[in-house]
Amino acid sequence: MTRFNTPGFIEDPVDKNESIEIRRKRLKFRSWHRGIKEADILLGSFADKFLQDMPADELDKYETLLREADSDLVAWITGDREPPEHYNHEVMQKLRSIDYIKILK
C-alpha cells in the first residue's frame, strides 16, 4: 500500500472500472473541496481549466498528486518548494503555468 504525506487521510484505490466522466467529476469535486482555501483555489481552478481534456495517464498523475497534503501541494504549485522528482511531470508543469492572480480578480 502506498503511503502518502497526508495524516489521517485514507483513500480507496483507483477503481479501474469507473467511467472517465465520473472520474473527472470526482476529481473536480476533490479539487474544490480540499480543506484549506488556498488549495481549493489552486486545484479547483486547475480542474476547471484542464480536467475535461486530460488523457487518462495525466488523470492518473493528477489523482496521485491529490493524495498529498495541501501544504505540500500549495508550496510545490506556487514555487515555494520544488516538488519531489516523481511529481515533477507535465501535470505539475500545468499546475504551475496558471496565473492564479488573474483568477482571484
Rank of each mutant, 00 (worst) to 15 (best):
D99H: 03
R24E: 05
I103F: 08
A75M: 10
W76C: 05
N5D: 14
D12M: 12
N88D: 15
S19E: 00
I10A: 15
S19F: 07
D48G: 08
D15P: 00
T6P: 00
E82G: 09
L95C: 12
K16P: 00
L43K: 01
W76L: 08
G8L: 10
L27Y: 07
R67W: 02
S19I: 04
P84L: 10
E18C: 03
I41S: 02
R26P: 04
R23M: 04
M1I: 11
I41T: 07
D53H: 03
I101F: 09
W32V: 08
W76G: 04
A39T: 02
K105C: 06
E82W: 03
N88W: 02
R67K: 15
P83T: 07
L43H: 02
L43S: 00
S19G: 07
I103E: 14
M92N: 05
E68M: 12
A69M: 13
Q93T: 10
E18H: 00
F9G: 08
K94Y: 03
R23S: 04
H89C: 08
L59C: 03
I10Q: 15
D12Y: 09
E21A: 13
L42W: 01
Q52W: 05
D40P: 07
E21H: 11
H86A: 13
F29L: 11
A39F: 00
E90A: 09
A69V: 06
D99F: 04
K102H: 10
R34I: 09
K105H: 09
A47C: 06
G79I: 05
S31H: 01
R96E: 01
M92K: 00
A56W: 04
K61M: 15
D70G: 10
D80P: 00
E68L: 03
E63F: 08
D53N: 10
M1S: 14
R34D: 09
R96M: 06
R34V: 05
R3F: 13
R81V: 05
L42P: 00
T6Q: 15
N17D: 13
I98N: 06
K49W: 02
S71C: 11
W76T: 03
N5Y: 11
T2K: 15
A47V: 05
E63V: 01
T2H: 12
R96T: 02
L42S: 05
F4E: 11
S97Y: 07
Y62P: 02
D57F: 10
E18R: 07
H89Y: 10
D48V: 01
R30F: 14
P55M: 01
L95F: 02
I98C: 02
I22G: 00
N88R: 09
D70Q: 04
V74M: 07
H86L: 12
W32Q: 15
Y87C: 09
L65T: 04
S97R: 00
S19V: 05
H86K: 15
E11V: 11
A56C: 04
A56L: 13
L59W: 03
L27Q: 12
P7H: 09
G35Q: 12
K105L: 10
L27H: 02
H86T: 10
S97F: 03
D15S: 09
Y100D: 07
I101W: 04
K61N: 07
